[in-house]
Design a protein around this nucleic acid. Structure first.
Lengths: 228, 228
DNA sequence: ACCGCGGCAAACGTCAGATGTATGTTTAGG
DNA sequence: CCTAAACATACATCTGACGTTTGCCGCGGT
Protein backbone atom coordinates (compact mmCIF):
# COMPACT_ATOMS: atom_id res chain seq x y z
CA UNK A 1 0.00 0.00 0.00
CA UNK A 2 1.32 3.42 -0.90
CA UNK A 3 2.24 6.00 1.72
CA UNK A 4 -0.71 8.10 0.62
CA UNK A 5 -3.09 5.21 1.17
CA UNK A 6 -1.67 4.67 4.62
CA UNK A 7 -2.19 8.33 5.40
CA UNK A 8 -5.80 8.04 4.26
CA UNK A 9 -6.32 4.97 6.40
CA UNK A 10 -4.68 6.69 9.37
CA UNK A 11 -6.96 9.72 9.21
CA UNK A 12 -9.89 7.36 8.74
CA UNK A 13 -8.86 5.51 11.89
CA UNK A 14 -8.44 8.70 13.87
CA UNK A 15 -11.98 9.73 13.01
CA UNK A 16 -13.44 6.31 13.69
CA UNK A 17 -11.67 6.15 17.03
CA UNK A 18 -13.11 9.51 17.99
CA UNK A 19 -9.71 11.20 18.14
CA UNK A 20 -11.00 13.52 15.45
CA UNK A 21 -14.56 14.58 16.07
CA UNK A 22 -16.92 16.19 13.55
CA UNK A 23 -15.94 19.80 13.03
CA UNK A 24 -12.49 19.32 14.51
CA UNK A 25 -9.57 21.14 12.94
CA UNK A 26 -6.61 19.17 11.65
CA UNK A 27 -3.02 20.32 12.02
CA UNK A 28 -1.51 22.18 9.03
CA UNK A 29 -0.34 20.10 6.09
CA UNK A 30 3.31 20.47 6.99
CA UNK A 31 2.90 19.32 10.56
CA UNK A 32 0.58 16.50 9.58
CA UNK A 33 3.01 15.34 6.94
CA UNK A 34 5.86 15.49 9.44
CA UNK A 35 3.92 13.43 11.99
CA UNK A 36 3.30 10.66 9.47
CA UNK A 37 6.80 10.98 8.03
CA UNK A 38 5.69 11.63 4.50
CA UNK A 39 6.12 14.54 2.12
CA UNK A 40 3.63 17.32 1.88
CA UNK A 41 2.67 16.23 -1.62
CA UNK A 42 1.66 12.77 -0.51
CA UNK A 43 -0.27 14.21 2.40
CA UNK A 44 -2.10 16.54 0.08
CA UNK A 45 -3.17 13.60 -2.08
CA UNK A 46 -4.59 11.89 0.99
CA UNK A 47 -6.43 14.98 2.14
CA UNK A 48 -7.75 15.58 -1.37
CA UNK A 49 -9.18 12.07 -1.59
CA UNK A 50 -10.91 12.42 1.77
CA UNK A 51 -12.13 15.85 0.87
CA UNK A 52 -13.71 14.59 -2.34
CA UNK A 53 -15.36 11.88 -0.25
CA UNK A 54 -16.77 14.67 1.91
CA UNK A 55 -14.97 13.42 5.00
CA UNK A 56 -12.72 16.45 5.24
CA UNK A 57 -13.49 20.07 4.44
CA UNK A 58 -10.51 22.10 3.24
CA UNK A 59 -10.79 25.86 3.57
CA UNK A 60 -8.09 27.72 1.75
CA UNK A 61 -6.23 30.16 3.91
CA UNK A 62 -7.80 28.76 7.03
CA UNK A 63 -7.26 25.07 7.58
CA UNK A 64 -8.65 21.58 7.17
CA UNK A 65 -11.63 20.40 9.19
CA UNK A 66 -13.58 17.20 9.69
CA UNK A 67 -17.06 17.56 8.19
CA UNK A 68 -20.23 16.98 10.15
CA UNK A 69 -20.12 13.35 9.00
CA UNK A 70 -23.89 13.55 8.65
CA UNK A 71 -25.40 10.95 6.32
CA UNK A 72 -26.56 13.65 3.95
CA UNK A 73 -22.94 14.68 3.59
CA UNK A 74 -21.20 11.31 3.44
CA UNK A 75 -23.74 9.78 1.09
CA UNK A 76 -23.52 12.70 -1.28
CA UNK A 77 -20.88 10.91 -3.27
CA UNK A 78 -23.35 8.18 -4.04
CA UNK A 79 -25.03 10.32 -6.66
CA UNK A 80 -21.73 10.94 -8.40
CA UNK A 81 -21.02 7.23 -8.54
CA UNK A 82 -24.47 6.49 -9.89
CA UNK A 83 -23.96 8.94 -12.71
CA UNK A 84 -21.10 6.85 -14.00
CA UNK A 85 -23.16 3.73 -14.35
CA UNK A 86 -24.65 2.75 -17.67
CA UNK A 87 -26.27 0.02 -19.71
CA UNK A 88 -27.70 -2.90 -17.83
CA UNK A 89 -26.67 -1.35 -14.54
CA UNK A 90 -29.19 1.43 -14.96
CA UNK A 91 -31.99 -1.12 -15.04
CA UNK A 92 -30.64 -2.65 -11.84
CA UNK A 93 -30.80 0.74 -10.19
CA UNK A 94 -34.34 1.36 -11.31
CA UNK A 95 -35.29 -1.99 -9.87
CA UNK A 96 -33.73 -0.92 -6.60
CA UNK A 97 -35.74 2.24 -6.71
CA UNK A 98 -38.92 0.33 -7.49
CA UNK A 99 -38.31 -1.87 -4.48
CA UNK A 100 -37.35 0.83 -2.03
CA UNK A 101 -39.20 4.00 -2.84
CA UNK A 102 -42.66 2.52 -2.25
CA UNK A 103 -41.60 1.29 1.18
CA UNK A 104 -40.23 4.69 2.06
CA UNK A 105 -43.34 6.42 0.76
CA UNK A 106 -45.53 4.13 2.82
CA UNK A 107 -43.56 4.97 5.93
CA UNK A 108 -43.79 8.65 5.09
CA UNK A 109 -47.59 8.42 5.10
CA UNK A 110 -47.46 7.50 8.78
CA UNK A 111 -45.09 10.28 9.74
CA UNK A 112 -45.64 13.23 7.45
CA UNK A 113 -46.31 16.55 9.17
CA UNK A 114 -48.54 19.39 8.03
CA UNK A 115 -45.51 21.41 6.93
CA UNK A 116 -44.09 18.46 5.05
CA UNK A 117 -47.38 17.92 3.30
CA UNK A 118 -47.51 21.56 2.28
CA UNK A 119 -44.02 21.38 0.85
CA UNK A 120 -44.91 18.30 -1.17
CA UNK A 121 -48.06 19.96 -2.44
CA UNK A 122 -45.99 22.97 -3.46
CA UNK A 123 -43.72 20.91 -5.67
CA UNK A 124 -46.68 19.13 -7.18
CA UNK A 125 -48.29 22.44 -8.07
CA UNK A 126 -45.02 23.64 -9.56
CA UNK A 127 -44.93 20.56 -11.79
CA UNK A 128 -48.41 21.27 -13.02
CA UNK A 129 -47.41 24.85 -13.76
CA UNK A 130 -44.25 23.76 -15.52
CA UNK A 131 -46.03 22.46 -18.60
CA UNK A 132 -43.43 21.40 -21.16
CA UNK A 133 -40.53 23.10 -19.42
CA UNK A 134 -38.45 19.97 -18.98
CA UNK A 135 -35.85 21.54 -16.76
CA UNK A 136 -38.42 22.85 -14.31
CA UNK A 137 -40.28 19.57 -14.49
CA UNK A 138 -37.19 17.55 -13.62
CA UNK A 139 -36.26 19.88 -10.79
CA UNK A 140 -39.63 19.78 -9.08
CA UNK A 141 -40.05 16.08 -9.73
CA UNK A 142 -36.83 15.44 -7.87
CA UNK A 143 -37.85 17.85 -5.12
CA UNK A 144 -41.24 16.19 -4.85
CA UNK A 145 -39.82 12.75 -4.25
CA UNK A 146 -37.16 14.12 -1.96
CA UNK A 147 -39.76 15.85 0.16
CA UNK A 148 -41.83 12.71 0.35
CA UNK A 149 -38.97 10.57 1.59
CA UNK A 150 -37.73 13.34 3.85
CA UNK A 151 -41.12 13.18 5.56
CA UNK A 152 -39.96 9.92 7.14
CA UNK A 153 -37.54 11.99 9.20
CA UNK A 154 -34.74 9.61 8.28
CA UNK A 155 -31.89 11.60 6.77
CA UNK A 156 -29.86 8.57 5.75
CA UNK A 157 -32.83 7.09 3.96
CA UNK A 158 -33.51 10.35 2.17
CA UNK A 159 -29.99 10.87 0.91
CA UNK A 160 -29.67 7.25 -0.12
CA UNK A 161 -32.76 7.27 -2.30
CA UNK A 162 -31.90 10.70 -3.65
CA UNK A 163 -28.54 9.36 -4.78
CA UNK A 164 -29.96 6.27 -6.38
CA UNK A 165 -32.54 8.15 -8.38
CA UNK A 166 -29.89 10.33 -9.93
CA UNK A 167 -30.30 13.61 -11.75
CA UNK A 168 -29.19 12.37 -15.13
CA UNK A 169 -31.42 9.37 -15.02
CA UNK A 170 -34.48 11.36 -14.05
CA UNK A 171 -33.80 13.92 -16.75
CA UNK A 172 -33.54 11.22 -19.39
CA UNK A 173 -36.87 9.71 -18.42
CA UNK A 174 -38.66 13.02 -18.37
CA UNK A 175 -37.37 13.96 -21.76
CA UNK A 176 -38.76 10.77 -23.18
CA UNK A 177 -42.03 11.30 -21.37
CA UNK A 178 -42.55 14.78 -22.69
CA UNK A 179 -41.68 13.79 -26.24
CA UNK A 180 -44.26 11.07 -26.02
CA UNK A 181 -46.63 13.60 -24.49
CA UNK A 182 -47.49 11.29 -21.64
CA UNK A 183 -46.25 13.70 -19.03
CA UNK A 184 -49.78 14.47 -17.87
CA UNK A 185 -50.18 10.88 -16.79
CA UNK A 186 -47.05 11.06 -14.71
CA UNK A 187 -48.27 14.21 -13.03
CA UNK A 188 -51.49 12.38 -12.22
CA UNK A 189 -49.44 9.66 -10.56
CA UNK A 190 -47.80 12.26 -8.36
CA UNK A 191 -51.23 13.51 -7.54
CA UNK A 192 -52.21 10.03 -6.36
CA UNK A 193 -49.16 9.78 -4.13
CA UNK A 194 -49.93 13.13 -2.58
CA UNK A 195 -53.53 12.20 -1.85
CA UNK A 196 -52.54 9.01 -0.12
CA UNK A 197 -50.00 10.88 2.01
CA UNK A 198 -52.58 13.49 2.91
CA UNK A 199 -54.88 10.72 4.08
CA UNK A 200 -52.09 9.09 6.03
CA UNK A 201 -52.82 5.86 4.22
CA UNK A 202 -49.57 3.91 4.17
CA UNK A 203 -50.76 1.01 2.05
CA UNK A 204 -52.26 3.28 -0.57
CA UNK A 205 -49.22 5.53 -0.62
CA UNK A 206 -47.01 2.52 -1.12
CA UNK A 207 -49.13 1.26 -3.98
CA UNK A 208 -49.22 4.67 -5.64
CA UNK A 209 -45.45 4.99 -5.43
CA UNK A 210 -44.97 1.53 -6.86
CA UNK A 211 -47.26 2.33 -9.75
CA UNK A 212 -45.39 5.55 -10.41
CA UNK A 213 -41.90 4.12 -10.31
CA UNK A 214 -43.11 1.26 -12.45
CA UNK A 215 -44.06 3.73 -15.17
CA UNK A 216 -40.57 5.19 -15.23
CA UNK A 217 -38.98 1.79 -15.19
CA UNK A 218 -41.05 0.58 -18.11
CA UNK A 219 -39.93 3.60 -20.06
CA UNK A 220 -36.28 3.05 -19.38
CA UNK A 221 -36.52 -0.62 -20.18
CA UNK A 222 -38.15 0.10 -23.51
CA UNK A 223 -35.49 2.66 -24.35
CA UNK A 224 -32.81 0.22 -23.40
CA UNK A 225 -34.23 -2.49 -25.59
CA UNK A 226 -34.60 -0.07 -28.47
CA UNK A 227 -31.02 1.07 -28.09
CA UNK A 228 -29.60 -2.44 -27.97
CA UNK B 1 -13.20 25.57 -8.01
CA UNK B 2 -9.61 24.43 -7.78
CA UNK B 3 -7.70 23.16 -10.78
CA UNK B 4 -7.65 19.70 -9.26
CA UNK B 5 -11.43 19.71 -8.93
CA UNK B 6 -11.74 20.74 -12.55
CA UNK B 7 -9.48 17.90 -13.57
CA UNK B 8 -11.64 15.48 -11.59
CA UNK B 9 -14.76 16.85 -13.23
CA UNK B 10 -13.15 16.63 -16.65
CA UNK B 11 -12.22 12.96 -16.27
CA UNK B 12 -15.67 12.36 -14.89
CA UNK B 13 -17.16 13.96 -17.99
CA UNK B 14 -14.97 11.96 -20.33
CA UNK B 15 -16.17 8.74 -18.75
CA UNK B 16 -19.79 9.79 -18.70
CA UNK B 17 -19.61 10.83 -22.35
CA UNK B 18 -18.19 7.47 -23.29
CA UNK B 19 -14.85 8.90 -24.42
CA UNK B 20 -13.28 6.73 -21.74
CA UNK B 21 -14.81 3.30 -21.60
CA UNK B 22 -14.48 0.77 -18.77
CA UNK B 23 -11.04 -0.81 -18.87
CA UNK B 24 -9.61 1.94 -21.08
CA UNK B 25 -6.07 3.15 -20.44
CA UNK B 26 -5.48 6.81 -19.72
CA UNK B 27 -2.51 8.76 -21.07
CA UNK B 28 0.50 9.05 -18.74
CA UNK B 29 0.31 11.59 -15.94
CA UNK B 30 2.64 14.01 -17.71
CA UNK B 31 0.68 14.05 -20.92
CA UNK B 32 -2.65 14.29 -19.12
CA UNK B 33 -1.37 17.17 -17.06
CA UNK B 34 -0.10 18.90 -20.18
CA UNK B 35 -3.43 18.50 -21.94
CA UNK B 36 -5.28 20.13 -19.07
CA UNK B 37 -2.55 22.72 -18.53
CA UNK B 38 -1.94 21.82 -14.92
CA UNK B 39 1.06 20.51 -13.05
CA UNK B 40 1.68 16.83 -12.55
CA UNK B 41 1.08 17.20 -8.82
CA UNK B 42 -2.39 18.60 -9.27
CA UNK B 43 -3.19 15.89 -11.78
CA UNK B 44 -1.99 13.26 -9.35
CA UNK B 45 -4.36 14.59 -6.70
CA UNK B 46 -7.25 14.30 -9.14
CA UNK B 47 -6.31 10.77 -10.13
CA UNK B 48 -5.85 9.79 -6.51
CA UNK B 49 -9.32 11.00 -5.58
CA UNK B 50 -10.90 9.10 -8.44
CA UNK B 51 -8.84 6.06 -7.65
CA UNK B 52 -10.01 6.06 -4.03
CA UNK B 53 -13.55 6.32 -5.37
CA UNK B 54 -12.81 3.20 -7.44
CA UNK B 55 -13.38 5.01 -10.69
CA UNK B 56 -9.76 4.70 -11.79
CA UNK B 57 -7.33 1.88 -11.20
CA UNK B 58 -3.71 2.97 -10.97
CA UNK B 59 -1.11 0.28 -11.58
CA UNK B 60 2.37 1.33 -10.65
CA UNK B 61 4.90 0.90 -13.42
CA UNK B 62 2.15 0.27 -15.92
CA UNK B 63 -0.46 3.00 -16.23
CA UNK B 64 -3.86 4.24 -15.15
CA UNK B 65 -7.03 2.51 -16.27
CA UNK B 66 -10.76 3.05 -15.96
CA UNK B 67 -12.28 0.39 -13.72
CA UNK B 68 -15.15 -1.85 -14.79
CA UNK B 69 -17.53 0.74 -13.31
CA UNK B 70 -19.64 -2.18 -12.12
CA UNK B 71 -22.00 -1.34 -9.25
CA UNK B 72 -20.13 -3.70 -6.97
CA UNK B 73 -17.04 -1.62 -7.57
CA UNK B 74 -18.46 1.89 -7.51
CA UNK B 75 -20.64 1.27 -4.47
CA UNK B 76 -17.75 -0.20 -2.55
CA UNK B 77 -16.99 3.18 -1.09
CA UNK B 78 -20.39 3.19 0.55
CA UNK B 79 -19.19 0.79 3.20
CA UNK B 80 -16.27 3.03 4.05
CA UNK B 81 -18.56 6.01 4.43
CA UNK B 82 -20.94 4.05 6.64
CA UNK B 83 -18.10 3.12 8.97
CA UNK B 84 -17.59 6.77 9.78
CA UNK B 85 -21.13 7.30 10.96
CA UNK B 86 -22.02 7.17 14.61
CA UNK B 87 -24.56 7.98 17.25
CA UNK B 88 -28.10 8.61 16.12
CA UNK B 89 -27.09 8.02 12.53
CA UNK B 90 -26.49 4.35 13.24
CA UNK B 91 -30.11 3.99 14.24
CA UNK B 92 -31.17 5.64 11.02
CA UNK B 93 -29.14 3.12 9.10
CA UNK B 94 -30.64 0.19 10.94
CA UNK B 95 -34.05 1.55 10.11
CA UNK B 96 -33.05 1.67 6.48
CA UNK B 97 -31.94 -1.91 6.72
CA UNK B 98 -35.15 -2.91 8.44
CA UNK B 99 -37.11 -1.34 5.61
CA UNK B 100 -35.08 -2.66 2.72
CA UNK B 101 -33.70 -6.04 3.61
CA UNK B 102 -37.11 -7.69 3.99
CA UNK B 103 -38.14 -6.46 0.55
CA UNK B 104 -34.93 -7.78 -0.98
CA UNK B 105 -35.31 -11.09 0.84
CA UNK B 106 -38.86 -11.42 -0.44
CA UNK B 107 -37.71 -10.85 -4.00
CA UNK B 108 -34.92 -13.36 -3.49
CA UNK B 109 -37.47 -16.03 -2.61
CA UNK B 110 -38.94 -15.74 -6.10
CA UNK B 111 -35.61 -15.91 -7.89
CA UNK B 112 -33.22 -18.01 -5.82
CA UNK B 113 -31.57 -20.88 -7.68
CA UNK B 114 -30.60 -24.31 -6.35
CA UNK B 115 -26.95 -23.27 -6.18
CA UNK B 116 -27.82 -20.06 -4.39
CA UNK B 117 -29.89 -21.94 -1.88
CA UNK B 118 -27.04 -24.36 -1.23
CA UNK B 119 -24.65 -21.50 -0.62
CA UNK B 120 -27.04 -19.90 1.84
CA UNK B 121 -27.50 -23.20 3.65
CA UNK B 122 -23.72 -23.54 3.85
CA UNK B 123 -23.31 -20.25 5.67
CA UNK B 124 -26.16 -21.10 7.99
CA UNK B 125 -24.51 -24.40 8.90
CA UNK B 126 -21.23 -22.61 9.47
CA UNK B 127 -22.94 -20.25 11.90
CA UNK B 128 -24.34 -23.17 13.83
CA UNK B 129 -20.87 -24.75 13.98
CA UNK B 130 -19.29 -21.49 15.06
CA UNK B 131 -20.70 -21.56 18.56
CA UNK B 132 -19.28 -18.65 20.54
CA UNK B 133 -16.57 -17.83 18.03
CA UNK B 134 -17.66 -14.26 17.41
CA UNK B 135 -15.35 -13.64 14.50
CA UNK B 136 -16.57 -16.69 12.62
CA UNK B 137 -20.14 -15.87 13.53
CA UNK B 138 -19.91 -12.36 12.17
CA UNK B 139 -18.22 -13.51 8.99
CA UNK B 140 -20.81 -16.11 8.13
CA UNK B 141 -23.67 -13.90 9.25
CA UNK B 142 -22.53 -11.29 6.74
CA UNK B 143 -22.03 -13.94 4.06
CA UNK B 144 -25.47 -15.37 4.77
CA UNK B 145 -27.26 -12.11 4.21
CA UNK B 146 -25.10 -11.28 1.24
CA UNK B 147 -25.93 -14.60 -0.40
CA UNK B 148 -29.61 -14.08 0.22
CA UNK B 149 -29.68 -10.67 -1.41
CA UNK B 150 -27.36 -11.82 -4.18
CA UNK B 151 -30.00 -14.42 -5.04
CA UNK B 152 -32.05 -11.57 -6.49
CA UNK B 153 -29.47 -11.35 -9.25
CA UNK B 154 -29.27 -7.60 -8.77
CA UNK B 155 -25.67 -6.64 -8.20
CA UNK B 156 -26.41 -3.02 -7.37
CA UNK B 157 -28.96 -4.06 -4.78
CA UNK B 158 -26.54 -6.53 -3.24
CA UNK B 159 -23.66 -4.11 -2.90
CA UNK B 160 -25.92 -1.37 -1.60
CA UNK B 161 -27.33 -3.46 1.23
CA UNK B 162 -23.93 -4.92 1.97
CA UNK B 163 -22.57 -1.43 2.39
CA UNK B 164 -25.42 -0.29 4.61
CA UNK B 165 -25.19 -3.26 6.92
CA UNK B 166 -21.54 -2.57 7.41
CA UNK B 167 -18.93 -4.80 8.94
CA UNK B 168 -18.53 -2.70 12.02
CA UNK B 169 -22.21 -2.46 12.71
CA UNK B 170 -22.80 -6.18 12.37
CA UNK B 171 -19.82 -7.02 14.54
CA UNK B 172 -21.03 -4.72 17.27
CA UNK B 173 -24.46 -6.28 17.31
CA UNK B 174 -23.13 -9.82 17.43
CA UNK B 175 -20.81 -9.05 20.27
CA UNK B 176 -23.71 -7.78 22.28
CA UNK B 177 -25.81 -10.80 21.34
CA UNK B 178 -23.27 -13.36 22.44
CA UNK B 179 -22.65 -11.63 25.70
CA UNK B 180 -26.36 -11.77 26.37
CA UNK B 181 -26.30 -15.38 25.20
CA UNK B 182 -29.26 -14.90 22.94
CA UNK B 183 -27.28 -15.89 19.91
CA UNK B 184 -29.20 -19.13 19.55
CA UNK B 185 -32.34 -17.18 18.93
CA UNK B 186 -30.72 -15.21 16.17
CA UNK B 187 -29.52 -18.39 14.53
CA UNK B 188 -33.08 -19.66 14.66
CA UNK B 189 -34.19 -16.53 12.84
CA UNK B 190 -31.70 -17.25 10.10
CA UNK B 191 -33.13 -20.74 9.96
CA UNK B 192 -36.60 -19.30 9.39
CA UNK B 193 -35.37 -17.10 6.57
CA UNK B 194 -33.71 -20.05 4.90
CA UNK B 195 -36.82 -22.18 5.12
CA UNK B 196 -38.98 -19.51 3.53
CA UNK B 197 -36.47 -19.10 0.72
CA UNK B 198 -36.34 -22.84 0.16
CA UNK B 199 -40.12 -22.85 -0.16
CA UNK B 200 -40.02 -19.91 -2.53
CA UNK B 201 -42.48 -18.14 -0.26
CA UNK B 202 -41.86 -14.42 -0.78
CA UNK B 203 -44.28 -13.15 1.85
CA UNK B 204 -42.96 -15.50 4.49
CA UNK B 205 -39.35 -14.72 3.60
CA UNK B 206 -40.08 -11.04 3.90
CA UNK B 207 -41.70 -11.47 7.27
CA UNK B 208 -38.86 -13.62 8.56
CA UNK B 209 -36.29 -11.06 7.45
CA UNK B 210 -38.24 -8.26 9.09
CA UNK B 211 -38.43 -10.17 12.32
CA UNK B 212 -34.72 -10.84 12.21
CA UNK B 213 -33.60 -7.32 11.45
CA UNK B 214 -36.01 -6.08 14.09
CA UNK B 215 -34.18 -8.13 16.69
CA UNK B 216 -30.88 -6.50 15.81
CA UNK B 217 -32.40 -3.08 15.76
CA UNK B 218 -33.96 -3.47 19.16
CA UNK B 219 -30.56 -4.45 20.52
CA UNK B 220 -28.81 -1.48 19.04
CA UNK B 221 -31.49 0.89 20.23
CA UNK B 222 -31.19 -0.43 23.74
CA UNK B 223 -27.42 -0.08 23.68
CA UNK B 224 -27.76 3.42 22.37
CA UNK B 225 -30.16 4.43 25.11
CA UNK B 226 -27.94 2.85 27.73
CA UNK B 227 -24.94 4.74 26.41
CA UNK B 228 -26.72 8.07 26.33
C1' DA C 1 10.88 -24.88 -30.80
C1' DC C 2 10.42 -23.78 -25.95
C1' DC C 3 11.70 -21.87 -21.60
C1' DG C 4 14.07 -18.82 -18.47
C1' DC C 5 16.83 -14.98 -17.36
C1' DG C 6 18.63 -10.25 -17.70
C1' DG C 7 18.25 -5.69 -19.07
C1' DC C 8 15.83 -1.69 -20.91
C1' DA C 9 12.24 1.69 -21.09
C1' DA C 10 7.93 3.48 -19.55
C1' DA C 11 5.10 4.97 -15.81
C1' DC C 12 3.83 5.67 -11.24
C1' DG C 13 5.59 7.02 -6.19
C1' DT C 14 7.94 10.24 -3.38
C1' DC C 15 10.49 14.11 -2.05
C1' DA C 16 12.25 19.07 -1.69
C1' DG C 17 11.98 23.93 -2.43
C1' DA C 18 9.84 28.07 -4.03
C1' DT C 19 6.09 31.16 -5.03
C1' DG C 20 1.15 32.57 -5.48
C1' DT C 21 -3.31 33.53 -3.21
C1' DA C 22 -7.20 33.45 -0.08
C1' DT C 23 -8.58 33.92 4.79
C1' DG C 24 -8.75 35.30 9.63
C1' DT C 25 -6.86 38.29 12.96
C1' DT C 26 -4.79 42.08 14.76
C1' DT C 27 -3.85 46.76 15.01
C1' DA C 28 -3.81 51.65 13.91
C1' DG C 29 -6.71 55.40 12.92
C1' DG C 30 -10.95 57.97 12.79
C1' DC D 1 -16.90 51.90 18.96
C1' DC D 2 -16.25 50.93 14.39
C1' DT D 3 -13.62 50.60 10.11
C1' DA D 4 -9.80 49.61 7.21
C1' DA D 5 -5.11 48.50 6.35
C1' DA D 6 -1.28 45.38 7.51
C1' DC D 7 0.22 40.86 8.82
C1' DA D 8 0.62 36.02 9.75
C1' DT D 9 -1.23 31.61 8.56
C1' DA D 10 -2.45 27.94 5.60
C1' DC D 11 -3.80 26.05 1.43
C1' DA D 12 -2.84 25.99 -4.06
C1' DT D 13 0.26 25.36 -7.61
C1' DC D 14 4.46 24.73 -10.15
C1' DT D 15 9.08 22.89 -11.12
C1' DG D 16 12.64 19.51 -11.12
C1' DA D 17 14.71 15.49 -9.54
C1' DC D 18 15.23 10.69 -8.14
C1' DG D 19 13.50 6.04 -6.59
C1' DT D 20 10.80 1.81 -7.57
C1' DT D 21 7.82 -1.23 -9.93
C1' DT D 22 6.13 -3.32 -13.94
C1' DG D 23 5.83 -5.02 -18.72
C1' DC D 24 8.27 -6.33 -22.61
C1' DC D 25 11.86 -7.77 -25.61
C1' DG D 26 15.82 -10.15 -26.83
C1' DC D 27 19.45 -13.26 -25.71
C1' DG D 28 21.04 -17.70 -24.69
C1' DG D 29 20.53 -22.31 -23.12
C1' DT D 30 18.10 -26.70 -23.34
Amino acid sequence: MSLTDEAIAEIHRLIQAGKLKPGAKLPPEQQLAAELNISRGSMREAVKALSVARVLDVRRGDGTYVTSLAPSVLLEGLGVAVELMHGKTVLELTEVRRLFEPVATGLAATRVSAEGLAEIRGHLDAMIEAGDDIESLVRHDAAFHRSVVAATGNEALTTLLEGISGRTLRARVWRGMVEASSAHRTVAEHEAIYSALADGDAALAQAAALLHVGTSERWLRRMHEAGT
